[in-house]
Simulated scan of single mutants.
Amino acid sequence: MISIKDLSKVFSPNGKNSIQAVNGLSLDINKGEIFGVIGYSGAGKSTFIRLLNRLEDPTDGQVIIDGENITALRKNELRLARQEIGMIFQHFNLLWSRTVRDNIAFPLEIAGVPKQKRMERVDELIGLVGLTGREDAYPSELSGGQKQRVGIARALANNPKVLLCDEATSALDPETTNSILQLLVDINEKLGLTIILITHEMHVIRKICHRVAVMEAGMVVEQGDVLEVFLHPKTEVTKKFVEQIMGDTEQEDALHLLANQFTTGKVVRLHFVGEVTNQALISKLSKQFDVEVNILHGKITQTQKGAYGSLFVHMDGKKDEISNVIRYITSTSVEVEEIDHA
């Protein structure tokens, strides 16, 4: 659906000192998926998303959407191509002198859609994003979540193939963020729309994305299925993002110190994936093996590809019996990580 090849963007604000915002970035994004791009401030992610619809022109590279090379289009061709690429913004970018209905209708006016068809489409979108009854309200009369729903409806007005979301929930409170993310999931499922979502918040990636790319210094340093990236982060920046969801390093340090207090047995961390998270594994171990199992700490979270989590336990018993327990756990597809004593 979307193929990005060696995309680069260099800014030269004073003609001398250049800034490499995006550096040789390549990605392939599948039709109908929600693809997340995450990075800290300055990673180049917002510049990257603006290159996809040429709000910024690339210094080098190609962006091919549904077989069309966006980077090679002339001005009039680009104007038409942009009708198939919707975009929503962090701060909504609404027209404050227009009502909800007129904001949503604006791109249809520009496209020359007749008034009757325009109003029919607007009414359809108002229902889709849950704004029925607020058609005649102005942006100043709306909550943050309602403003973003207007932004989403406006972005969908021309039936785009792709929806670009630039930090679409960063200005919203947690509850409103969840409702907007669920709306994006519903739109993705109902319309089969390809969504590219830029964020610096890992819980946003966890909640709705199928795959993710991690950006740092203008480059993609890691990418893959969300569940795989959460389970096996390879780079330091990815590990920091995963810690946002799975707990802080101070807690893990405390657990390692706790492990040193046990003079017998072994402390292990169990990694659960998918349906295994719902199985009564600890209960089975206590019944089938002559060991005592004490739960020290645990956390389970959910992604679009399934649940995963970690559990710290202390097992006490004979050495051979503990080894049998670890072999049994491994056979159930649960990963076992032994916690070293200092």
Rank of each mutant, 00 (worst) to 15 (best):
residue 258 L to T: 11
residue 257 L to E: 15
residue 266 K to H: 00
residue 257 L to Q: 15
residue 254 A to W: 11
residue 276 V to S: 09
residue 256 H to E: 14
residue 240 K to F: 06
residue 275 E to V: 12
residue 245 I to D: 03
residue 256 H to A: 08
residue 252 E to W: 07
residue 278 N to K: 13
residue 256 H to T: 12
residue 270 L to S: 10
residue 246 M to S: 06
residue 250 E to W: 02
residue 256 H to F: 10
residue 247 G to Q: 03
residue 279 Q to G: 00
residue 257 L to K: 15
residue 266 K to L: 13
residue 272 F to A: 09
residue 269 R to L: 07
residue 274 G to T: 04
residue 251 Q to A: 07
residue 260 N to T: 14
residue 255 L to V: 07
residue 243 E to R: 10
residue 271 H to P: 02
residue 264 T to W: 00
residue 277 T to E: 05
residue 245 I to L: 07
residue 272 F to W: 08
residue 269 R to M: 03
residue 279 Q to V: 06
residue 241 F to M: 03
residue 249 T to M: 08
residue 244 Q to Y: 11
residue 266 K to M: 10
residue 255 L to I: 10
residue 276 V to A: 11
residue 259 A to W: 03
residue 275 E to I: 11
residue 276 V to R: 12
residue 257 L to H: 15
residue 264 T to E: 14
residue 270 L to N: 03
residue 267 V to I: 09
residue 262 F to T: 02
residue 239 K to T: 09
residue 262 F to R: 09
residue 273 V to K: 14
residue 245 I to V: 13
residue 279 Q to A: 03
residue 276 V to P: 00
residue 277 T to S: 10
residue 265 G to I: 06
residue 250 E to I: 08
residue 268 V to R: 04
residue 241 F to L: 05
residue 274 G to D: 14
residue 267 V to A: 07
residue 251 Q to S: 11
residue 242 V to N: 01
residue 244 Q to V: 04
residue 260 N to H: 13
residue 263 T to K: 15
residue 249 T to A: 09
residue 271 H to N: 13
residue 241 F to S: 01
residue 244 Q to L: 08
residue 255 L to N: 04
residue 266 K to G: 02
residue 242 V to T: 01
residue 270 L to M: 14
residue 261 Q to W: 01
residue 258 L to P: 00
residue 279 Q to H: 04
residue 242 V to D: 01
